[in-house]
Design a protein around this nucleic acid. Structure first.
Length: 506
DNA sequence: AAAAAAT
């Protein structure tokens, strides 16, 4: 057992660690922290739940303690694949850098640029970002990465899954080669190995044992039902939930639309559930996650946005409403429970249509989970075909609020036909679709003009100009002068601020 | 097949 105090961390950082109540370092922390403190590169092969966030946050804080940030030139950069993960790293940083003079900014999509820009202008020591928004800021000239001394890549294999590798390569190339790199991945597929060979210098390879294998701490169950009908599945899900002694649980669905429908259905049946997936706006995602973490929300209905990496302590149950498309996802999903030595239960609803994917899961986990039996006659449960389809053609006036079909009494639990699905679909679509009476032409003019303005400023290092900047250059031929169009006389301050002079221009 | 991430 290694104590944090044995790792060479500064007294200030140790004090912050002590305040969180931790005294013993996890194996990856014990191995990585001394190496990272020396300034060496680290290749950490570790899953979530092994304590890897602190393994890179703590030494980073100590190494940055001497020195100050300059405007738009961060000294350290952490890249994470999802917004939630980035946010999690930020809270960890906030916790451990407490009382020290380090500043940080979270650069993720889905939230306004202005706060982020303000922080960048003032100068931050550490940037914690998702790749897209980071590069967006860079292209807008709000950011120079030439001062980066430490770069952290978290969950690299997931970035690969999400198609971020070109972005990561580009970010690597924007930072100085003499930087320190801390690179983490749960697995090492060839693409990732190539990346580490290209961008890490003589890294110390640290492999953390997989957190207790699924078999040991998670009781796995299969709930086979004879029908793939959504309504039958929802009924089965409720039965599983109701028979379990749940502290808190996550319900995983394969589709975002299904997440909405299932969450709505559970709520309708009096269960404390809320949806989370990538189509929900960022503040909702964060709020939902926060209340789930605090224990205020009992059931989180989620897409695979929540399958990996999210640090949600002590989830007692995981329900797979769908068999995941990839067997790997199953392992990640149920890994949300049974963490840190606690026991957990995982259930998966399986229909005849899932046999192929189920086989892959069973093969991967190498064991046969217990089978759950139901006291339900599924043959009587069937979703009515979506009402409204045929009617809409006829008259447009009756689609909302008018139900021309009486509820049928024959079913014990009236899971109404329309209310569950139709309103959900309507809500989900509404914000995304521009209103018919809006003026799309005007909107189109505003965007490219401001962008062009931002992009045409001489801030991009040569040779690293992105495809979009190329477009910007071409448009510049048409010369709009310096006029900024689309803000009605008011030009936002950030567009008028002087461009950054690069060090090699001086 | 689906989800995630920049707008």
């Amino acid at each position: 057992m290694t104590e944090f105090s044995d790792l060479g961390l500064s007294p200030a950082t140790l004090a912050a660690v002590a305040e969180t109540g931790y005294t013993t370092a996890t194996p990856i922390q014990a191995a990585a922290i001394p190496v990272a403190l020396q300034g060496r590169d680290v290749l950490g092969i570790a899953q979530t739940g092994t304590g890897k966030t602190a393994a890179f946050t703590l030494p980073m804080i100590d190494r940055l303690a001497a020195g100050r940030a300059r405007a738009r030139m961060p000294r350290a950069l952490v890249i994470a694949p999802t917004r939630e993960l980035a946010d999690q790293v930020a809270s960890s940083f906030e916790k451990y850098a407490k009382g020290q003079k380090l500043t940080w900014a979270l650069l993720i999509g889905g939230v306004s640029f202005s706060d982020q820009e303000l922080k960048l202008d003032r100068g931050v020591d550490v940037l914690i970002a998702t790749p897209g928004r980071l590069l967006d800021h860079f292209e807008r000239g709000k950011l120079l990465l030439t001062g980066v001394q430490i770069m952290v890549v978290d969950e690299a294999d997931r970035m690969l899954d999400m198609g971020f590798i070109p972005d990561i390569e580009r970010i690597f190339k924007l930072t100085p080669p003499k930087r320190q790199t801390l690179f983490f991945s749960a697995t090492m597929p060839p693409e990732i190995t190539r990346l580490t060979k290209q961008f890490l210098k003589d890294p110390e390879r640290i492999e953390a044992a997989r957190p207790a294998t699924t078999a040991e701490t998670i009781a796995q169950h299969l709930a086979r039902i004879p029908s793939a009908d959504p309504k039958a599945k929802r009924t089965a899900l409720r039965a599983l939930i109701e028979r379990s002694d749940i502290n808190n649980g996550i319900v995983f669905c394969n589709r975002k639309s299904e997440v909405d429908i299932v969450a709505k259905s559970l709520k309708k049946h009096g269960l404390d559930a809320a949806p989370i997936h990538g189509d929900l706006d960022q503040s909702t995602r964060m709020r939902t996650l926060e209340s789930f973490r605090k224990g205020e929300l009992k059931l989180l209905v989620a897409s695979d946005v929540a399958a990996r990496g999210l640090d949600i302590p002590a989830v007692s149950h995981v329900f797979n409403y769908d068999v995941p498309h990839h067997a790997d996802d199953y392992v990640h999903r149920i890994g949300r429970t049974g963490r840190a030595g606690r026991t957990g239960e995982a259930f998966m609803i399986v229909t005849p249509a899932d046999s192929k994917n189920l086989d892959k899961v069973l093969k991967l986990i190498g064991k046969t989970p217990d089978e759950v039996t139901f006291d339900i006659d599924f043959s009587t449960i069937k979703d009515e075909p979506r009402p409204g389809r045929g009617r809409e053609k006829g008259g447009r006036g009756r689609e909302r609020g008018v139900r021309d079909r009486a509820p049928r009494g024959r079913r014990p639990e009236a899971e109404a036909e329309t209310p569950v699905e139709a309103p959900v679909a309507a809500e989900a679509e509404a914000p995304a679709r521009p209103r018919r009476d809006a003026k799309p032409r005007e909107r189109r003019e505003i965007e490219p003009t401001t962008r062009r303005e931002a992009e045409s400023r001489p801030v991009q290092p040569r040779g690293e100009r992105p495809a979009r900047a190329d477009r910007g250059e071409r448009r510049r031929d048409r010369d709009d002068g310096d006029r900024v169009v689309g803000f009605g006389g008011e030009t936002p301050a950030f567009l008028l601020r002087p461009a950054i002079t690069r060090p090699d221009d001086e």
